[in-house]
Structures are given as C-alpha cells and as structure tokens.
Amino acid sequence: MSDTNTPFRRFWTEFRENKVAVFALAVVVTMILLALFASVVSPQNPYDLANLSLMDSRRPPGFVGSGGYTHLLGTDPQGRDLLSAIFHGLRISIQIGLAAGFVSLTIGTALGITAAYLGGRIEALIMRLVDLQLSFPAILLALVMVALLGQGKAQLIGALVAAQYAYFARTAYGAAKAERGKDYIEAALATPLSGRLVVWRHLLPNCTPPLIVVATVQIANSISLEATLSFLGLGLPVTEPSLGMLISNGFPYMMSGRYWISVYPGVALIILIVAINVVGDQVRDQFNPRLRK
C-alpha cells in the first residue's frame, strides 16, 4: 500500500459516495467563504452607520436604494441592505459558533480524559458534575450565564461554552474509558511509558473520531443557541447584528407583510445548520464501524 492510501484519502473516497453530504459540505464551505469575505462581497458595510439611510428602511427585495444599487433581499428597519447584513451576520454567527465549539472541545476533552484516565474519586467528582449539568437544558444554562457575565462577544462565548462543554466531556470520557481498557494502552503502560506520553500519544488520538462528530454537531448547536440568545436580546450589541438579531429585528414587521426582514436571515441560519448536520451525520456514519457495510 502506497502513500496514496492515507487515512484521509480513504475517508474522502468514502465521503464522496454520499452526494447529499458532498453538497452539504459545499454549502458549508461556501457560507464560510462568504462570511470570511463578507466585506468584499457585500454591496454595503452594514456596521457603518454613516452608510445607512432611514429613507431606505424596510424596503422590499429588488428595491433600488439611495446607494444606487439593488437591495436583492430588501432592507431592514435601520435601512441596512439585508444581503450585506446576512453575510456579516453569518460571519459573527460562525465566529462565535466555532470559538465556542473549540473552547468547549478543549475543556470537555481535558475533563473527560482526565476522569477516564485517573479514575477513582476524581472520575466520580468530574463525571457527577457533568451529569448534573447535563440534566439542565442548555438554553437555561446559557441564559443564566449571560445574566451573570453580561453582554459582549467574550461573555457570550463563555456562556455557550458553559452550556456545552459537558457534551464533549461525556463523549471524551466514554471514548477514553473504552480505549483505556484496551491492550495497547496496557502495553504502553507496561513498557513503562509515562502517563503523560500514554495520554497524549495513545489515548487522545484514539478518542478523536467521536469527538470530531460531536464537535460538528455542537458547532451547529452553538450557532443556533447564539441565534436564540440574540433573538431574545441577550446576545451581541445591536450595532453588530448576528443572524439571530436580524431575525429579531424583523419580527415586529412579520404581520405587516414585511416578511423578508426575518425570513431571509432565518433561511440562511437554517441552511447553515442543516448543512453542518448533514456533514456531521456522514462523518458519524463513517466513524462508526457498526453502521458500515
């Protein structure tokens, strides 16, 4: 077997067979690119208040505004071009989702693996705490955390991490507990290698597949949780609207026929979350040998 048969390549060959997942991956990548280059692709900078004209507020899709260009998806109550606002909102949503996801991944994995590796009282302490936390709904915890920490990007990420690290801890614990009992770990400990080496070189790499699966799902969950908080007005300041806040901004006008202000950001949010979940499902199927044919 040559170098062309790397694990990654094999993974991709199999991934490619699911056309829906490939399409979903393309959607996710496109949305990330749009978010990254939001300021380039947007006709307008929606955060620059000097750019906004109240004359243009709440205009329907296709309206040519005072800027001289067409508002393809219409404008919001502040007169922002909705398309530009969605691109920038995506950027904030994805930023916060990824940041919260990775911080939770790190903290959760560290806790879960520590518990599984050390065992005994430390295991009991960490895992009972995690169980306790998992018995509360994530949204409730996030609300409490926002109330305690206040508003702002870092605070919001902190709240999301607090609400989600437990899922990673549980997954990492389960995976590490199973791997811990296997012969190759015992062989490494018998050599003997130091505990640090065994954890970093053997235990952690073998726990990654389930963690990657949970990470994809939890990033999607972070994004929707953030949207929920923003919708409730507990997210970011109004000057930097994320998708959730855009939906919230348009909500009062839903009944008066100005559907686009809420609906288009909502559609963007749904497409993003569904696409991430489809990719995540395929990754899970490939990592789970029991579902394999």
Partner: peptide, 12 residues
C-alpha cells in the same frame, strides 16, 4: 500480549 489486533495502537 495475546491479541495482536488489540495490543498495537491502531493510529500509530
């Protein structure tokens, strides 16, 4: 060890 399928780290 007994089982060479279990005693080698599959990712190393």
């Amino acid at each position: 060890f007994q089982d060479p399928f279990a005693s080698l780290d599959p990712r190393m």
